[in-house]
């Protein structure tokens, strides 16, 4: 698996360049023209990302989240969801780096092979940062009305958490 993963990029690059050479296009010029698009793209990317990181950082570092978790604790104990995975389940869609930091905390506290750590790993590994992806992709191409995109993304994230709660006990 690791070998396939390591060979994927070099092989892809090689295939693309050889195919271009076979079709007799100027691959060098073509590469330069393509790379040129990078700068306007990051320039379009910067403002929406800045706005989102600005808002998310204030919110995630305010400490309010901890209060919310303390408040929700009895409810989660009632439906037999381990409370320890709650922070990662809630924060994962909002911030990738925050999720990873939480995972690192859990590994340090409980050890990497702990049941809760494994469950948190699987939640983190089977989803992506919904809010970041929406901001990055839609922001870069100038979409302002996102319609139901956020709801669809967040519901899929909720599905990931519920599935993890069901599937992890079957494996560990």
């Amino acid at each position: 698996m690791k070998l396939i993963s390591n060979l994927f990029i070099p092989l892809l690059v090689l295939v693309v360049i050889l195919y271009g050479a076979k079709k007799k296009i100027n691959v060098y010029d073509s590469f330069v023209d393509g790379a040129k698009e990078g700068l306007p793209m990051v320039l379009n990317m910067f403002p929406p990302l800045l706005a989102m990181i600005f808002g998310i950082n204030i919110f995630t570092n305010s400490g309010l989240i901890n209060e919310v978790f303390t408040f929700l604790k009895p409810l989660f104990l009632l439906i037999h969801v381990p409370l320890e995975i709650l922070p990662i389940a809630v924060m994962r869609p909002l911030s990738g780096s925050f999720g990873l930091a939480l995972l690192n905390d859990m590994f340090t506290t409980y050890g990497a092979d702990n049941y809760l750590s494994i469950m948190a790993s699987i939640i983190q590994g089977s989803s992506d940062t919904t809010l970041y992806i929406i901001t990055l992709y839609f922001g870069t191409i100038g979409i302002k009305k996102i319609k139901y995109a956020l709801w669809a993304g967040l519901l899929a994230d909720l599905a990931t958490v519920i599935l993890s709660l069901i599937i992890v006990p079957l494996f560990f």
Partner: peptide, 27 residues
């Protein structure tokens, strides 16, 4: 944000270059 953009930018430029070859060659 700037750190993130600086991380994304070089790889983005490389892949946009490779992709342009794939696009123009019909691949």
């Amino acid at each position: 944000t700037l750190d993130l953009i600086i991380q994304i930018f070089p790889l983005l430029a490389i892949w946009l270059g490779i992709m342009n070859i794939a696009k123009q060659s019909g691949l």
